[in-house]
Design a protein around this nucleic acid. Structure first.
Lengths: 202, 202
DNA sequence: TGTACATCAGTGAACGCGCGTTCACTGATGTAC
DNA sequence: TGTACATCAGTGAACGCGCGTTCACTGATGTAC
């Protein structure tokens, strides 16, 4: 037999295939039978490792969210200004830019990351997420207050404003009516928006 | 026969049923066979009136977009300030609020309205939409410039900033991670965001 | 005014597709004695 | 060191589902003469 009966690390292999499918075409493309096919395994083998399709999707979503966070952290880390004020400003901007960058360069993963919430009920417990991209945004905003980039009065609710702006920008350009806007113009208009956000927070 | 063989206005009836389905559960719920079932007609009768499922969906999407625009116009019209500056300010705010109001009160239609663009290719011709909700936003922003609510330097790109903000706000609360935020808190945070946008434009 | 006939609107059966999930199974692995 | 046996991982067939779309049809309508 060319392939051993026991795969060895099927769980990981399935996750990778599924992630690849998600990258290519979003959540709907993550189809159990196709994942199995591509991994070269029978169509029901996945049930040894995941309760059902939703469980598999959830893991991909978590990983995607982590990737988004990692990119934000990386872009923040690339800021090398020494001046405290300037540094906080740039880190704030870098965070927002990274969010949009991820959404537009990995549309499938971005979609998967935010799709799980559809199942969420409107009257589920609301736990302020201190972790993840949202948590990171809060950190950077707090830095902004300390460095004088964000006025204390404008700090409250700033998370939502900033998040909404970058998220909306991403969605409108990724799969919305602004999809045909050329990349250069899109980049310019993102800078304009971030300028505006800075003014809103100052 | 209780029902006449010829329906008389089947096209309209199908559209209404389909819109009802879209309202209840979004684009995926608009299933030809279900539309036919609910309209009390054979499952393929729709093909006399629509080329295919996509054609039907597109009509619902257009109608949904028109409804969104109508709500925005209505809320703008309800502003009764006489002072020019105050009036422009309030109309601007009302426009944004109406956008979010529609998205959250008619999530299914809102989703349908923006779903058609998924098929759009990234390198399709980019025609600045002078009509529709986006056009309306531009009108209100121009009014803002005249009335001194929006600085001329900040007018450029303001459409995208404002649109992105309200759209992101809507999406995050409608089917995103902010879904569990209670209505009162959500309303307050929307006002904070609009305050911020005003500062960004001034 | 009456009737033949073209046209239109709706029907019922069928095609082809693909999915998620379950069932009873078989092949491989490793551990206790 | 060798072997019985429990356990685990993967298989193949099948179930039940529902969809969009097409085909050849039939029932109703209206118009030309």
């Amino acid at each position: 037999v060319s392939q051993p009966y026991h795969h060895g690390n099927l769980r990981q292999a399935l996750l990778e295939t599924a992630t690849a499918l998600a990258r290519e075409a979003g959540p709907d493309a993550v189809v159990l039978r196709e994942v199995a096919r591509r991994t070269g395994v029978s169509h029901n083998a996945a049930y040894r490792h995941f309760a059902d399709r939703d469980a598999l999707l959830e893991e991909i979503a978590n990983e995607a969210m982590a990737q988004l966070e990692r990119l934000m952290l990386q872009r923040m880390g690339e800021v090398n200004a020494t001046d405290r004020h300037e540094r906080a400003r740039r880190r704030l901007r870098a965070t927002g830019r990274a969010y949009v960058e991820f959404a537009l360069s990995e549309p499938g993963l971005f979609e998967v990351a935010f799709d799980g919430f559809t199942l969420l009920d409107a009257d589920d417990a609301y736990c302020t997420p201190l972790e993840g991209p949202f948590g990171l945004l809060n950190v950077v905003l707090d830095e902004g207050v300390v460095a004088g980039v964000v006025t204390p009065e404008h700090r409250q609710g700033a998370e939502v404003t900033c998040w909404a702006a970058v998220h909306g920008f991403a969605v409108l350009h990724q799969r919305g009516p602004l999809k045909p806007v050329p990349a250069a113009e899109r980049a310019a208009s993102l800078e304009i928006m971030i300028d505006g956000l800075e003014r809103a927070l100052a």
